[in-house]
């Protein structure tokens, strides 16, 4: 087995609506793999198929070498899942929730006990072990769910929108836990998100998904470099012509573009070029009012591939969910 996950022509239709459309991807062992896309892009549907909660309409997929339809039980034993919506028993304590989980996965008593301490330690909830889950905050509950996903030492951990609805600080904590467990526990992580920063910060590789299709797949850095270089924008009072001559003299300036008193330069590592640009402008007697830098983001990558901004997209997820409920 080469890859942690491999899909071939995965398709899922709900009453004629295509939620996942011919998805081919392979997730390497040990990596943090991100599925990035707007709500309703089909991320959760992919996760649900890979975690055996939904059967694909067409195509096949293997998780840790096991076929997701023919070997459902084998798949289930080697994965952990953190669902998008809460899935804990609020009437049980943290320890009891984990104990239940361990037993369901056939872990013997003393191993369960050791492991509960370990995973609670990992997400820093050890002192809350005997508190009822209904008294947990959203962030704590999510941390416990991550701990539970790891409890039975899965090879692959699926996290469906793990930081949805959490505040920025909690989100960063969760990222730290995910990195930590990816490193310490040697678990392959598949995460869905519609937050660019999350995909950019956390993932080794990202698949950008739109309308059920993978439109791009690579490391965040490569994806962003496909968009091209950074943009340095100067607000200039006068002397545009002189400035053009001076700046185009630098070999690292890839393009020069002026309009309405603004000059846009395409350059690599724009931050470090600011002093040179300002200095050159001064020497040429050009007065600069302001300088700003724009580095390509995954948002730009999404825009490039789909022609839309990710934030525009809402509503279709609800439709898919409504169709699935029937």
């Amino acid at each position: 087995m080469e890859h942690a996950i491999e899909t071939r022509g995965l398709i899922k239709r709900f009453d004629g609506l295509v939620a996942v459309d011919d998805v081919n991807l392979s997730v390497r062992r040990g990596e943090i793999f991100g599925l990035l896309g707007p709500n309703g892009a089909g991320k959760s549907t992919i996760i649900k198929m890979l975690t055996t909660m939904l059967r694909p309409t067409e195509g096949e997929a293997y998780v840790w070498g096991h076929h997701i339809v023919r070997e459902r039980d084998a798949v289930r034993s080697c994965i952990g899942v953190v669902f998008q919506d809460p899935s804990v028993d609020g009437k049980l304590t943290a320890r009891e929730n984990l104990d239940f989980h361990g037993r369901m996965y056939g872990m013997p008593g003393d191993e369960r006990k050791r492991r509960i301490a370990e995973v609670l330690e990992l997400v820093e909830l050890y002192d809350k072990a005997d508190v009822l889950l209904e008294e947990f905050s959203g962030g704590m509950r999510r941390r416990l769910e991550i701990a539970r996903g790891l409890m039975h030492r899965p090879h692959v951990l699926f996290l469906d929108e793990p930081t949805l609805g959490l505040d920025t600080q909690t989100r960063r904590y969760i990222w730290d836990y995910i990195r930590k467990m990816n490193g310490e526990e040697d678990v392959t992580v598949v995460i869905t998100t519609h937050y660019m920063e999350e995909a950019d910060n956390l993932c080794n590789r990202v698949a950008i998904i739109d309308h059920g299709r993978i439109v791009a797949l690579d490391t965040p850095i490569s994806l962003k470099s496909m968009i091209g270089t950074d943009t340095l924008t100067l607000e200039v009072r006068d002397g545009l012509e002189r400035l053009r001559d001076v700046l185009l003299g630098f070999e690292w300036v890839r393009s020069f573009d002026a309009s309405n008193g603004y000059v846009r330069l395409s350059v690599d590592s724009a931050q470090s070029r600011i002093p040179e640009v300002v200095l050159a402008a001064c020497r040429a007697g050009v007065r600069i009012k302001s300088v700003s830098v724009h580095e390509p983001t995954l948002e730009d990558v999404f825009l490039r591939y789909t022609g839309r901004s990710m934030r525009d997209e809402t509503g279709k997820g609800d439709l898919v969910r409504a169709l699935m409920r029937r």
């Binding site: 975690t51 909660m53 084998a74 289930r76 919506d85 899935s87 804990v88 028993d89 369901m104 996965y105």
Partner: peptide, 14 residues
């Protein structure tokens, strides 16, 4: 309703 069913259903238990 409270989501716990998923936890049960995704476990390797018939």
């Amino acid at each position: 309703e409270f989501g716990f069913l998923r936890e049960i259903m995704v476990a390797p238990v018939t």
